[in-house]
Amino acid sequence: MLTPQRKQRILEQLARDGQVLSKDLSARFAVSEDTIRRDLRELASAGRLQRVHGGALPSSSAIATFAERTALKTDAKKTIARTGAELISAGQVVMIDGGTTTSELIKCLPNELDITVVTHSPSIALGMIDHPTIEVILIGGRLYKHSIVTVGAAAIEGIGHIHADIFFMGVTGIHPEAGLTTGNYEEACIKRAFSARAAETVVLVSPEKINAASAFVIGSLGLINTIVVDSGTDDNWLRSIEEKGVSVVRAE
């Protein structure tokens, strides 16, 4: 089998099974594991998958630019955001991560809702500037332009002085074994810092993030309490998430 054909078969198996293992691919194609690792390395360089220890996972399309991500799975994001907004109660301190799904979340907050929102996203803060009863605390730091959020030591310092009721975490990938991932090292640090200061952490999981992975690990699924997913999400995948102790809320 020629290399391009083998690579295509690898991608087909990855799409079908949600992960591939180098050892199994070596046996399937009767080639060395070094050859398989080279295939995976080249596919990763082309953005077709994310290499992990022992194999590969689907790469997340959620690491594209903010403008490009805004166009991804828009209907599902809106439905998930509406359901996520229902988890917020009056009087709470709510941490909201940057991202396209959380941008939809703030549009769903009722006008009469009286809460305090803490965010490191200037766009999230600006999105609530006309909301009559929401107090907004904007965490400062160095602006990471790709995601339009602040990062760095100043942001970590600001987050460390807050006790929140709930944190809506943005991720680019969620996988039962690989856990929660994102596309930037500093963003991963900020997300862990937010989660550590919240009584409950929720992830709004749009379809392109499911079973996908990016280069930087935020943490295992033990870091979060709840995920909100589209009603059409695969039941087997959801069971694998629930087995990790995470509650699942289906958006209708």
Rank of each mutant, 00 (worst) to 15 (best):
Q5V: 09
Q5S: 05
K7S: 08
I10E: 09
L14Q: 12
D17A: 08
G18T: 10
Q19P: 03
S22Q: 03
S22M: 04
K23A: 12
K23D: 03
L25C: 05
S26H: 01
R28L: 05
R28V: 04
F29G: 01
S32G: 07
E33G: 01
D34R: 11
R37E: 03
D39K: 02
R41A: 13
E42V: 13
E42W: 11
L43T: 06
S45N: 10
S45K: 15
A46I: 00
L49M: 06
Q50L: 04
H53T: 14
L57H: 13
S60A: 10
S61K: 15
A62W: 09
A64N: 11
A64L: 12
A64M: 11
T65D: 12
A67H: 10
R69H: 08
R69A: 05
T70H: 05
T70G: 12
A71L: 14
L72V: 15
K73I: 01
K73G: 09
T74P: 14
I80Y: 09
A85K: 05
A85M: 07
E86S: 11
L87M: 06
S89L: 14
G91N: 11
G91F: 03
G91K: 13
V93P: 06
V93S: 14
G98R: 07
G99H: 13
T100N: 15
L105V: 10
L105E: 14
C108K: 12
C108M: 13
L109K: 02
N111F: 05
E112L: 07
E112T: 14
L113A: 05
L113W: 01
V117H: 07
V117D: 08
V118Y: 02
T119K: 06
S123Y: 00
I124S: 12
L126N: 09
G127D: 01
G127I: 01
I129G: 04
D130L: 13
H131M: 10
I134H: 06
I134V: 15
E135L: 15
L138K: 08
G140N: 02
G140W: 07
R142M: 13
L143T: 06
Y144W: 04
H146F: 02
H146P: 11
G152S: 12
G152L: 10
G152N: 10
A153C: 06
A155R: 06
H161Q: 15
I162D: 03
I162W: 05
H163G: 13
A164Y: 03
F167P: 10
F167N: 15
F168P: 02
M169D: 09
V171D: 02
T172D: 15
H175A: 08
E177V: 15
T181I: 05
G183K: 03
N184H: 12
E187C: 07
E187L: 11
I190Q: 01
K191A: 08
K191C: 00
R192P: 00
R192M: 04
F194H: 04
F194K: 02
R197E: 05
A199F: 00
T201Q: 08
L204I: 06
S206N: 14
E208N: 13
K209I: 07
A213E: 02
V217E: 07
I218H: 04
S220T: 12
S220Y: 02
S220A: 11
G222R: 04
G222E: 04
L223G: 00
I224A: 10
I224R: 07
N225H: 08
N225S: 10
D230V: 01
D230E: 07
D234I: 10
W237P: 00
L238E: 06
I241N: 02
I241E: 02
K244S: 09
G245N: 06
V246G: 05
V248G: 03
V249E: 06
